[in-house]
Design a protein around this nucleic acid. Structure first.
Lengths: 325, 325
DNA sequence: TTGAAAGCGCTAACAT
DNA sequence: ATGTTAGCGCTTTCAA
């Protein structure tokens, strides 16, 4: 290690680089200068081999989740993760869970290649990662599909509650035949938003039979809306489980010669960047997606470094009222 | 290295793990079994320290990065990169260029932490990475903003040509007052698509003064369209530099009481997943975004491993005619 | 507070 | 074809 030409030993340089407290300021300074001057950059591999820490965390993305990237909500979460990690010394390794090579991801994670993992996805499958929790710090985006073990960490929003608020809004606007386009029922947000819709309706004694399920894509929203309309039972409002499907629903509503919100009011979920510029601008539940990602990263780093963290973090949502309802 | 309990030396195990040809099948087999049995996973850090290869590549995302993830086109490119890399032994490290810590990315890349880098972004700034080219294999997504040095590798589509085709379509449909909502003029796709629009118009002797510039976001598309309409010079067709802005333009066209494509026909660019479910479905230029990402990854790996590669790869586009024009 | 020395787990000549 | 022997560049006891 050439930087030892600052007149000290490699050990001392190492101490300076790692910000050890027990180095005389003078010496530290001299070393810093030598480092600058020589453009020294520590070798990650060597460092991690010696210290048994990798300074990197994995972002696990289930592949069926090709979807993940197409979904603006996820994209924001990833962005938040990346930005937040950028301020630390951790590096982000993206792992796409390949169906062709099952176990590859798992082996990678357990092989000591990362100090922790972030798992984002709406999907059921995630749960398989829960078992990693006791060998590696893991933080999930969104609650697990079923009961949560106390040692699982995740950050989420209260989907049930947020959905209720959204539906209440529709009711306040005088709507009585309120349908929903739900998300996949094997994903927590899909289940929870549907539950919230139902709860609000029940509270007001309204019919809760107008349900169609989509898969969070615009196309599925369009066809779900079409089915809803074809029932011929009348619909004057619809709560859609995400904005992408809401935009799809717009098409079908218009194709049926109906107006928004005149004939049918629509409320979405996510507040992605299409929501505001849709025609009409979409009333929707805002989720702090970037912050969710940032929080996941922060929690994971705290976990890795042994700082105290709460195992579940809920972030607030709010209804953004625009012109569609 | 305990797996040597297969009765051979660590060197042999190493050979087996790395698929060296000079190992007796029998021995290789025995070692494989020992590996399975013991659940052995090679340590990346040690391996990379010894071999001076990291088996990982960086995905560099310049910009306040926000944009990149919000843009479905980029999201697909990233997805393609990740999927393609998933089939190799390379790992993907995401680097967000932070404005707060300039040089951090650069140092990381030059610090021998990765075997190569992928740079995606529309932005001018990229060019600063061109200088990395001679210290590290680098593949760019999209051509550099200015003249390209022969040693720079990139994969792209022919934006000028694709835009021409799109505008020709508008002309064939009988449109004569054809405007464009261009992308930022410091980004190659922004410049090239505008050039293609102009070229087609000139060829037909049509007016090429109806230009407004946006920044690829839906909101900017909406306001650009509004400005175009407010000119009061008449517009019966518009070529928009990306789908997100096209969707934004839809709003303004409708807000002005005009119909699509009756009063103004619109053609977009990207064929992102909102295009097909817009109302009306958007006619747009399809870019093989996932494949672009996959190609970038493939080219980079070839470069790293010293296989022959062509320095620029153009992928084909095609016009997808739907209902908006 | 600093230096010396011993590895971290693996690969890569060099022998055999 | 396989084993031996050195390191890769850093961190980390342990002494001084």
């Amino acid at each position: 290690m050439v930087a030892a030409r600052a007149g000290v030993s490699r050990a001392t340089v190492s101490r300076v680089v790692n910000g050890s407290p027990k180095v005389t300021p003078d010496v530290a300074h001299a070393v810093q200068e030598a480092i600058e001057a020589m453009g020294y950059v520590p070798n990650r591999a060597a460092r991690s081999l010696a210290s048994r820490r990798t300074q990197s965390v994995a972002l696990v993305v289930p592949e069926s989740a090709a979807r993940v990237f197409a979904d603006p909500f996820f994209a924001s979460v990833v962005q938040g993760v990346a930005l937040s990690l950028g301020e630390t010394d951790y590096t982000l390794t993206m792992l796409i869970e390949s169906e062709l090579q099952p176990g590859k991801t798992r082996r990678y994670l357990l092989g000591g290649n990362v100090d922790g993992a972030l798992v984002v996805s709406h999907h059921t499958g995630d749960h398989s990662y829960a078992s990693l929790t006791d060998s590696l710090p893991v933080v999930f985006g969104g609650r697990p599909i079923e009961g949560n073990a106390p040692e699982n960490h995740f950050v989420d929003v209260d989907n049930v509650h947020a959905a209720e608020i959204a539906v209440e809004h529709l009711i306040e606007r005088g709507r009585r035949r309120i349908a929903t386009i739900a998300g996949p029922q094997d994903m927590p947000p899909g289940v929870d938003r549907l539950a919230g819709w139902r709860r609000a309706l029940e509270r007001h004694g309204l019919d809760d039979s107008l349900i169609e399920v989509g898969d969070f894509t615009p196309a599925s929203g369009a066809s779900a809306m079409r089915r809803l309309l074809e029932r011929g039972e009348g619909v004057d409002g619809v709560f859609v489980a995400n904005d992408q499907m809401a935009i799809g629903a717009y098409s079908s509503i218009r194709a049926a010669g109906l107006s928004i919100p005149g004939d049918v009011a629509v409320v979405g979920f996510d507040d992605d960047n299409y929501a505001a510029s849709a025609t009409p601008p979409l009333t929707t539940v805002h989720q702090p997606s970037i912050e969710m990602g940032a929080t996941m990263a922060r929690v994971l780093v705290d976990l890795i470094e042994g700082r105290p963290v709460e195992s579940v973090t809920f972030l607030p949502t709010n209804l953004v009222v625009r012109a569609s309802a």
